[in-house]
């Protein structure tokens, strides 16, 4: 799997410049007191990783990689691990920058607030990965964009209908006891959803013919 991961990370090299610029913009905006854009960096990582699928697809890498030992399994595993590794690495960097900016401006660091905000961002990026990767493996990058659009559109419509015609406050009340365990819960749900997503992708690739 290490080889496949190195390949995916090497493909991101050309986007490191863009990430570097975003980090500078984020830092400057943070010091100037403008809006918080810390969520952008981890999201950019996922988007860059998704762009690697396009390159893979263009050069028929997926079919070629099957000629390697354990190619089917390792190419999927590496994609997930490389993405999570990048998300966590950039999140740690963003976290440190947030601490630095907060301290420079107020001489105090709101640890909890920054942690919770970052945790939300990581969860959001993992959610994108969870849905996108199996769809990409199943339909390819181009079709996946349409599928994702339809999926998001559907969820928004259903959400609107549900909230308009049904009183869902009982769900919030029923789950209020979980408030104290929110952080642990978010982490557990994130791990579970990524694991399920990975297993689905693995299954798709194990049966796919090229």
């Amino acid at each position: 799997m290490i080889g496949f991961m190195k390949k995916d990370l090497a493909m991101m090299k050309s986007n490191f410049k863009l990430l570097g610029i975003l980090i500078v913009v984020y830092t400057v905006m943070g010091f100037l007191g403008e809006m918080d854009i810390s969520f952008i960096l981890p999201f950019m990582c996922v988007m860059i990783m998704i762009s690697t699928f396009s390159y893979d697809n263009y050069n028929k890498w997926d079919a070629y990689s099957i000629s390697f030992p354990d190619g089917r399994k390792n190419s999927v595993k590496a994609k997930y691990v490389a993405t999570i590794f990048m998300i966590l690495a950039i999140s740690v960097l963003t976290l440190l920058l947030s601490f630095l900016i907060a301290y420079a401006k107020t001489k105090t660091i709101p640890y909890e607030q920054i942690f919770v905000s970052m945790l939300g961002t990581i969860f959001g990026t993992l959610l994108v990965l969870t849905f996108m990767y199996p769809i990409i493996y199943k339909f390819g990058v181009e079709k996946a964009r349409i599928v994702i659009f339809l999926l998001v559109f559907g969820i928004v419509i259903i959400g609107r209908i549900l909230t308009q015609y049904l009183d869902l406050s009982f769900i919030a009340k029923a789950l209020s006891f979980l408030e104290n365990y929110l952080v642990i819960l978010v982490i557990l749900v994130a791990i579970l959803m990524v694991f399920i997503s990975y297993k689905i992708s693995e299954k798709i690739i194990s049966k796919k013919e090229f």
């Binding site: 190195k6 390949k7 690697t52 263009y58 050069n59 028929k60 079919a63 000629s67």
Partner: peptide, 22 residues
């Protein structure tokens, strides 16, 4: 394989690093 290879944004150095792990 005909028309199947590494993504073309990679370099031979990247191929070496990848294949070392494969």
């Amino acid at each position: 394989l005909d028309d199947m290879f590494f993504p073309e944004i990679l370099t031979p150095n990247d191929i070496n690093q990848t294949m070392k792990g494969i």
